[in-house]
Amino acid sequence: MTTRRVTPGAAAAASAVTALSVAAAFTRPFTLAAGITVTLAYAGLAATLVAQRRVGTMPRMVARRPPVDGGPRRFGRRWLVWAVSLGSVAAFELASYLQGPRAAHPTLSAMLDGLDATPAGRGAAFAAWALLGWYLVTR
């Protein structure tokens, strides 16, 4: 059995994501505060990339493990099921966007508006978005 170790850099980044998500929970769209929290998340991502260049490694969320699906391989039939699945989501999002009114044909972001109408939902959504960005640069 392997032990998943949280690195110091990851702990610091997790603290920053938590603090920023709490701050974002109490902002409203179209305000300066909302723009600042998103901009700070961009800055955090940039800092992570700079740290990677200087130290030679990223502050990872957890120690690297081999992928359960064997890692990337040549594109082929094995990717088709994901192309259909995610392509259907993209096609329906586009169809919903082009049809009106929005109340009758809600898009993903319209549904997200309902989720982040409360501070708890907004903070959770912000944390999920920030962690996605972190994953993309540290994976």
Partner: peptide
């Protein structure tokens, strides 16, 4: 499928390789 089919993370890895 234990590696026969890619996971969503595998899709993300391939898309950002």
């Amino acid at each position: 499928s234990a590696g026969r089919w890619p996971t969503l993370a595998g899709v993300a890895r391939a898309a950002t390789s």
